[in-house]
Write a protein that binds this DNA or RNA. Structure first.
Lengths: 146, 146
DNA sequence: TTGCTTGCAAATGATTTGCACTGCT
DNA sequence: AGCAGTGCAAATCATTTGCAAGCAA
């Protein structure tokens, strides 16, 4: 506790903008999300940092989401998954193992990402849809399950 | 009812492979999914074709999913959304309106899709992840909400 | 008949919420 | 003191499931 990282500073700022305090419980959540190598479920979060009450964890994740610190994902499993917002991390996508259910982050080649962005921008004239952000989920088999 | 389309024939086949009958309730579900221009929620499905019992609709969607006829999506809204499997439709992605919550299908430029596939295939050597299919969700504003 | 299907009602389980208490500020 | 934050327990609500009745092969 105490060592204020770059991430902590950014989160403190975003929370302050929403009149929220950066309490120890919220720090534990942010730390738990940061340490994982992919989006995590609530049980995983509780296990990683014990001393978190389930209801408070849910409530704080919800508040952190509104504050733009956290992003909530619904990949269809039993539990929702949470990760730090892309405002606080690098733009990335997800590798979802269809065997064990694990979810890992990946960063794609910038060239691919660029051609994708271009295609999405074109949707505005073809479909009248103004694209904001996007998510790409890749389903398959992770290294452990091959 | 009775006009057997190409789609119906394919579904009948897939169901038969799983020892399932293509009953009228299941036909109504497939028709409801086919008629929509994007993935639909269960309430929407029930509204479109009344005379469907909620529990049977859920049960049949689940069975149809196992049989590879239907795909279930969890975009995070209150209800899950369902669509016909890509074995029965064209490969496509989703335009999700952040204002009204509607979800529409889009087919991307084949060139973009190809470069994407290539990038995903490369994940096998870089990450040890064997990619199967993928989903791309684009968030933004639909034509009606601009 | 045999067994897949259906619909109702009850059960499940992740997430949310009411409320009294704790602890910053 | 005043109010945001916490934790417990109870409430929600989409989805699932048990069971008795319906229907096709």
């Amino acid at each position: 506790m105490g060592s204020t990282t770059e991430l902590d500073r950014a989160v403190t700022q975003q929370l302050a903008d929403h009149d929220l305090r950066y309490t120890s419980g919220r720090r534990a959540i942010v730390a738990g999300l940061h340490d994982a190598d992919g989006p995590v479920t609530l049980p995983e979060l509780l296990e990683a940092s014990s001393d978190l009450a389930q209801s408070s964890a849910y409530r704080n994740l919800s508040l952190l989401e509104e504050a733009g610190v956290v992003r909530r994902l619904a990949h269809g499993g039993e539990y929702a998954r949470y990760e730090l917002s892309e405002a606080l991390t690098e733009h990335h996508h997800h590798l979802i193992c269809e065997n064990c259910g694990s979810v890992a982050d990946v960063v794609l080649d910038p060239a691919v990402e660029r051609s994708l962005d271009e295609a999405l921008r074109a949707l505005e004239s073809s479909e009248g849809f103004v694209a904001g952000h996007h998510t790409l989920d890749v389903y398959g088999r992770c290294a452990n399950c091959t």
